[in-house]
Computed example of a mutant assay.
Amino acid sequence: MSDRIPEPVADLLRAVLEALDIPHPATIGDGEEHARVLTDRAMHAVIALHGILDDQVTQNLGIEWTTAYLRKRLAEHPPTGYRAAGARTAAENGGGS
């Protein structure tokens, strides 16, 4: 018996991790925008998981379609708009002020 996760399932799990594993806010002031972005991304991950796991869903379009759909939704809600902890400024990266 193999312990390997089938690739379509692993890809969906990677997309869910991508949805939830976003940079932490740098300051308390950045927390509100971080929370908004994370909430939007988590909602789409939950919808994707329900689409695969719920027997009640009448149109299960498959793992590959659901994973692609989730990634499309995540692209609409990038983890931006707040300062992230550990992010370097342009000047620190050699990019001027």
Rank of each mutant, 00 (worst) to 15 (best):
H34W: 14
T39D: 11
G62Q: 00
P79T: 08
W65S: 09
A90I: 08
E92D: 13
N60K: 14
I52V: 15
R14C: 11
A19N: 02
V57G: 04
A91E: 11
D55S: 14
P8A: 12
V9D: 02
L13R: 12
T80W: 00
K72M: 06
R14I: 06
A26P: 10
R36S: 08
G94H: 08
V57Y: 07
M43Q: 04
T39R: 07
D11P: 00
P8R: 02
V9F: 15
T80E: 11
L53I: 10
R14E: 12
T67L: 01
E64P: 05
G62I: 03
E18G: 09
H34I: 00
M43D: 12
L70P: 04
T58N: 08
G95P: 02
T58C: 05
T67N: 03
Q56L: 09
R73P: 03
V57I: 15
E33A: 12
L74T: 07
A87E: 10
L61I: 13
A10F: 12
L70I: 10
D3Q: 13
A19T: 07
P23K: 08
S2L: 13
A35S: 15
E92R: 09
I5P: 01
Q59V: 11
G95H: 14
A68V: 04
A48Q: 00
A91Q: 14
P6V: 13
D11A: 13
G95M: 11
S97I: 08
E92F: 05
G95I: 01
T89M: 09
R14M: 09
P78E: 04
A10K: 13
E32F: 14
P8F: 04
D40Y: 01
R83I: 00
E18I: 03
A19V: 09
H50W: 10
L70C: 08
A68I: 02
I22S: 10
E33S: 09
R73I: 02
T80Y: 03
I5T: 15
H44D: 14
G96E: 14
L13K: 07
A68R: 03
A75M: 09
D54M: 14
E33D: 06
H77G: 06
R41H: 13
G31Q: 10
L38R: 05
I5W: 09
H34C: 02
W65A: 14
V46R: 13
V9L: 14
Y69M: 14
